Amino acid sequence: MALNTPQITPTKKITVRAIGEELPRGDYQRCPQCDMLFSLPEINSHQSAYCPRCQAKIRDGRDWSLTRLAAMAFTMLLLMPFAWGEPLLHIWLLGIRIDANVMQGIWQMTKQGDAITGSMVFFCVIGAPLILVTSIAYLWFGNRLGMNLRPVLLMLERLKEWVMLDIYLVGIGVASIKVQDYAHIQAGVGLFSFVALVILTTVTLSHLNVEELWERFYPQRPATRRDEKLRVCLGCHFTGYPDQRGRCPRCHIPLRLRRRHSLQKCWAALLASIVLLLPANLLPISIIYLNGGRQEDTILSGIMSLASSNIAVAGIVFIASILVPFTKVIVMFTLLLSIHFKCQQGLRTRILLLRMVTWIGRWSMLDLFVISLTMSLINRDQILAFTMGPAAFYFGAAVILTILAVEWLDSRLLWDAHESGNARFDD
């Protein structure tokens, strides 16, 4: 018995066209964080690309023209004298008006014999932002004059995390709450300039795509075929072959399989920071003279006294001054041990922890910024005066060393310790 099946006739004509040209192939790229070699397709503007294995951002879609970056830099340069030299806060102490600005706080630190601690604050609040705007201006002028731009481009990517104007702005709020127990506070004209400078700096850093600047100024022929001998440069993120001198053909720094002496430098910085954190938390970090009496505060006791007036601000200072430094030390110690013992479990967790400490590390400088600003506000000789204690130097040095330890660690070593050939990683 035959089955009668109805015929289905399409209502619209289906047209099949042959592909007349070869589909576009992607360029081969190595991930600078996990060293995976993959094919990167062509990316349009405002599109980002991520590593298929570790999800690290390979290409950032946010990109401004150099002219727009230069305009932002010149605007920031105009704001800087007002943000640093004009009063941020006014207080009335014992019937006398006192003005506080950024430069005055750094000068008070240096004047009291601790120039190293003052230079830490100076670099993060004044030096690094000033280098940022002058570097962008150098790129703008240098591109037109045919100057060598490689050193500036190499420095810009590392400079971003040292620009800490946003953290200093939080420190202004913390210092205001600490001082309000002794005097009446009012915002100064410099505060508005400083807030504007923070906003412009944040926007500029978020749109400063150094890798795209490398592509514009020093374009290189990408690798179009897969080759395990391809290496990625950690300076400019170019994937290719080393030249005859073993250097990256684009930025001219040595092109090595792994960062040289990464573990040794990381261990040295980490152990030194552990040693410095002990006096930083045991010795007094601030000293207040009130009517001839002397009151010393460690980091913890200062947080407890701050909690009596504002528990939320005390929580912020606790996280930045105690929780973050010790968390960074514990995480980095764990990561280094996992590399030495070739741990194969929990790779995803370790990668996330490394990215976390990379982002939060700079916030530990908050305590030094609060001390710097408070020193310029309260300084009335023996009637009422505020000065920093010996722990300030140890704390600042420990924070900087932990930042350097994270920067010096080559994250690809975590993958080397893991089993080879993993296309995915999980716990």
Rank of each mutant, 00 (worst) to 15 (best):
T9P: 12
K12S: 09
I14Q: 11
A18T: 12
E21A: 07
E22Q: 14
S39V: 15
P41V: 13
P41E: 10
H46C: 13
A49E: 03
A49T: 05
G61Y: 14
D63R: 15
W64L: 15
S65D: 05
M76R: 06
L79K: 01
M80C: 12
A83T: 04
W84K: 11
E86Y: 05
L88Q: 03
W92K: 01
L93Y: 05
T110L: 03
S119L: 01
C124L: 08
I126P: 11
L130I: 08
L132F: 12
A137Y: 15
A137H: 13
Y138P: 02
R150F: 03
P151H: 05
M155Q: 14
K160S: 08
E161F: 03
I167W: 05
Y168R: 00
L169C: 10
I177F: 11
I185L: 08
V189F: 06
F192Y: 13
S193P: 05
L197R: 00
V198M: 13
T201Q: 07
T204K: 09
L205D: 13
V210C: 12
L213T: 13
L213W: 05
W214T: 14
Y218Q: 03
P219S: 10
E228D: 05
K229F: 07
R231Q: 08
V232S: 13
G235E: 04
C236I: 00
P242E: 06
D243M: 05
Q244Y: 09
H252S: 02
L255F: 13
R259W: 03
R260S: 07
L263D: 14
L263N: 05
K265P: 02
W267H: 12
L270A: 08
A272M: 01
A280N: 04
L283R: 04
P284N: 01
I287M: 07
I288E: 00
Q295N: 05
D297I: 02
T298D: 05
S305G: 09
A307L: 08
S308E: 06
N310V: 05
A312F: 05
A314E: 02
I316P: 14
I316Y: 07
I319V: 09
I319H: 09
V324W: 15
V329F: 07
I330A: 15
M332V: 12
F333H: 08
L336C: 10
L337V: 09
Q345A: 13
R350W: 14
I351G: 13
L352T: 12
V357L: 10
V357A: 07
R362E: 05
L366Q: 12
T374H: 02
T374A: 07
M375G: 15
S376Y: 04
R380W: 05
Q382E: 02
F386S: 00
F386T: 00
G389E: 01
Y394M: 02
V399W: 01
I400A: 15
V406I: 09
L409Y: 09
S411C: 08
S411L: 07
L414M: 11
A417W: 11
A417Y: 10
A417N: 10
S420R: 11
